[in-house]
Design a protein around this nucleic acid. Sequence first.
RNA 1: GGACCCGUGGCUUAGCCAGGAUAUAGCACCGGGCUUCUAACCCGGGGGUCGCGGGUUCGAAUCCCGCCGGGUCCGCCA
Length: 562
Amino acid sequence: MFLDFMSEVETLLLGAIDQCRFELPENGSNRLQLEISPHADVASSVAFRLAPVLRRSPKAIAEELHRSMTPGPGGLVDQIELAGPYLNFFVNRKFLNSVVVQAQGQECWTGRLTDRAIVEHTSANPNGPLHVGHIRNSVIGDTIARVLKRAGSDVETQYYVNDMGRQIAIVVWGKDRYGLDSSKPDHAIARVYIEANRALNADPELKREIDILIERYEGKDQEVAAKVKSAVDYAISGIEETLRRLNISHDAYHWESEYAVSGEMADILQRLENTGLTQWEDGAFQLDLSGYGFEKKMVLKRADGTSLYITRDLAYHRWKAQHCDRVVDILGADHKLISSQLRTALGLLGVREPEVVIFEFVSLPDGSMSTRKGKFISADELLDEVEKQAFEEVTTRRPEEGEEFRRDVARQVALGAVRYDIIKVSPEKATTFDWKNALDFEKLSAPFIQYSHARACSILRKAGMQGSFDPELLQDENEVALIKKIAEFDLVVDRSARELKPHQLANYARELAESFNQFYRFSPVLEVEPALRASRLALVNAGRNALRVTLETLGIPALESM
RNA sequence: GGACCCGUGGCUUAGCCAGGAUAUAGCACCGGGCUUCUAACCCGGGGGUCGCGGGUUCGAAUCCCGCCGGGUCCGCCA
């Protein structure tokens, strides 16, 4: 839809530049200086760019370009307006009509990407429940996966399970020592983990027991392996349950130990040694990346011979690169340095580097969270509270409905509110968790968008069967604005997928709902003369489809009634 | 100390990578709108030295340099 219009504008503009024999300077990806603008559907300020080269005024250049452009009769571009040095392009009626028609069906909502992507996200250590920081990772990762899928890619999501680290050894040790209580598995694991850390702090001698566990596990000790598997599986089962509440699931789990056991890790070590950049220092095997701007050496193997996270991660990343076209990692800000070291090392090995999406930390009003110290707000607690609040809201608004309906709506509203709250903020922004904000269901939130969708469904329900319609009748300002906003969907998804910036889609969702609500307010549908009624009904259907697909791509349920 | 990220009305935030025409929204505040398709909505209003100082440019929230404030990292942890 909008992408087609954009391409046509590009062709026209390039043709005019060519015809005028202008030389377009190379500068970045937006050479034609195209932008969506309040003055036009698409505006170009390319004349400014050409001015210094041609030694003429931007205005004169724009005029000449304007004279050289005539939109073709079969195209989507209407008038081209000359506004001083600016060239303003507008969509024509044919475009608007075709959007309404296309948006009746399902085919127009998928992009043209054909590559295969692996998105790794969450990958939290199985030492406790997900907290409000972890789920920033989960929601960003899951939304990116959905956006890529929507854009046409074949996507697999993966959870990389840390079963070999020190923290997991502490969990196993604590589980043996204290035993698990009957609370939700991940929470029960957290209890023994926190307790074990307390004991280890109090008596540093106990640390030796942890080291022994790590050595035995890496030495393929069957008894330890069984204990690790059982503890990790248990924690993951709880984590999965939480993710399910967030409408998130993983297609595959990869355990770190796979790469240690299979010998892939050993192969990576050998290949790194072949680069000549490794050395033994203080008994440990290290990689010197000082030539790449890293002052500290990267330790690949401990003095006691056991492996480290980074080494296993190299093997995992090689596996991923071999099995897809696009490797995407979602990582917290604490992984910035290590992930650029990882990428550098992968570069040395000739392995394609991952695209890393870094998100900044979520902190509490009184400081950062810590699973080890038991200082965190769990995702379960957040969801419980938001659900409770949502239930009250639904009960106030729909007192006549039964409890089952109200519970169901509350659950879906809560899930949407939590996801939207996270995804609407761009990842590089550090945030502070705030209950008041989390429990607010007004305009900058998922319920606002879900509500628009429910309204559309309600109209369609009342209207009954839909017949043929003439999109030409949709002439009101609010109607045209809504059609254009619906058309923008493909552009937003395409950009969002290319740049891995899911918050752009969140923004779009709000704008789309806004456009729909204005249309809803100003254009009565059911009580107008039949021809107009049919046209507006078609627009409601188009809007409903756009809202539903947008919500689904954000992983938020599109409620039909709320 | 070094590296990276952030700094936009009282609070939260889009735009920054690819510099352009009146800087985006929300919350809060003030005023208006439910006998009409669900008011979790809509309309209007006030409120901004885009952290500070230089520079590049016809033009800077956007690019460059310096500074200030906040976050993250700099482990034979992950």
